[in-house]
Design a protein around this nucleic acid. Structure first.
Lengths: 200, 200
DNA sequence: TTTTTAAGTAAATAAACATTTACTTATTAT
DNA sequence: ATAATAAGTAAATGTTTATTTACTTAAAAA
């Protein structure tokens, strides 16, 4: 029995991310991908059931898992609120800055029904990201360190400005001046923290 | 000369938004649209050059313009920071809540190269939304009412949690309990305001 | 009323696409 | 060595799609 060539599988995944980063998800076709990876279209179907299967596996294993691991790097839910939040922000910013195609797929996962379903299932079932951040926020809310809101609301208040700023960062890469720097990110993080903290 | 039937043009636009709201942008095809509007595919091409032209015009005239008008309804850049921000938040939330397909297109405009281009051009050229909100934020920053950041950064800090919450709102419409209520939105708005205000 | 002209239609067309078919090749277990 | 088997390929296939062709209809201007 001839064994699977793992290099080819890796080529498929990496070229898929390249095409998505450079041309967008809507321009990723199986024939284009096969040509870019220097293989026959049929070979993709040996490794993946169909396009949906490829996209979901690419998204979960190549994007979501490394992304969540990177976010949680050096973070524990026992950190004090300010330190923990800054760690989450900086981890996220650094990772997304260096992985534009991953960011693109994450953004697509909000409007593509397919990826959105995959994202929600992954987060509900595995929840590597979900669990520590969930504990971090609810513990701080319960202890009265920050204002009390449902978890999803806290997450929106805490993390969505950062995602928007990453968007700005990529929009601005073609312009002469980079306005979204690490310093700006940290200052913004402090604004978000200031808003959420209970100061009574 | 037979005149254009404006009802048919309106049917095309309104059915397009229906399909986008119910099945997503990726499932809007010219034949499906023609059938839904009870016309021949050819008729769409009398009113629009091609699909891109249709989508861009739909997005700008049917979504972006009413959206920006709704956001600015009753808002002036001379309002005090807290009142003005709450007005912007409530206007935005109310409008998007009642226009799901418009929200869907706005979300797509972040990841679809086509709509993104249209959005940026429209905002740069017309800037109905841009201008008063820009003045509102920069004036308050200059006067020391809020912390000083570039406009784009201020906008991210001020508005992106709201957009994320609208997303939650639509995710939760299928669940039994609505967690994103007008009250929650107003409380979140106060959190954002608290973070940005200079209290020295 | 008749001519003119653009609006409108039904059906076709050509391109793009995901997926398969029919075949070849490489590797391992015997 | 060779049989067995899955990996791999080149070239279809059938479907879906945006867009056109060839024709009909309705209304305004003459």
């Amino acid at each position: 029995m001839r064994p699977k060539n793992l290099e080819k599988e890796q080529a498929i995944r990496s070229m898929a991310l390249d095409i998505i980063a450079n041309e967008g998800l809507e321009n990723l076709t199986m024939q284009k991908l096969a040509k870019a990876a220097n293989i026959s279209p049929r070979t993709i179907y040996i490794k993946y059931e169909n396009k949906e299967d490829l996209l979901v596996k690419l998204f979960i294993h190549e994007v979501l898992e490394p992304y969540e691991a990177a976010i949680l790097n050096g973070f524990t839910d026992g950190m004090d609120f300010s330190t923990g939040t800054k760690k989450l922000w900086m981890n996220t910013f650094t990772y997304l800055k260096n992985n534009r195609s991953h960011f693109a797929l994450l953004q697509h996962s909000k409007s593509s029904p397919l990826l959105n379903k995959a994202y929600q299932q992954e987060n509900i079932v595995q929840g590597q990201y979900f669990a520590p951040v969930h504990r971090f926020l609810t513990d701080n809310a319960d202890a009265g360190v920050i204002k009390s809101f449902p978890f999803d609301v806290l997450r929106a208040l805490l993390m969505s400005p950062l995602i928007d700023l990453v968007n700005e960062y990529f929009d601005h890469t073609t312009r002469p001046v980079q306005i979204i720097t690490d310093e700006v990110i940290m200052q913004c993080c402090e604004v978000v923290i200031a808003g959420l903290i209970n100061n009574k």
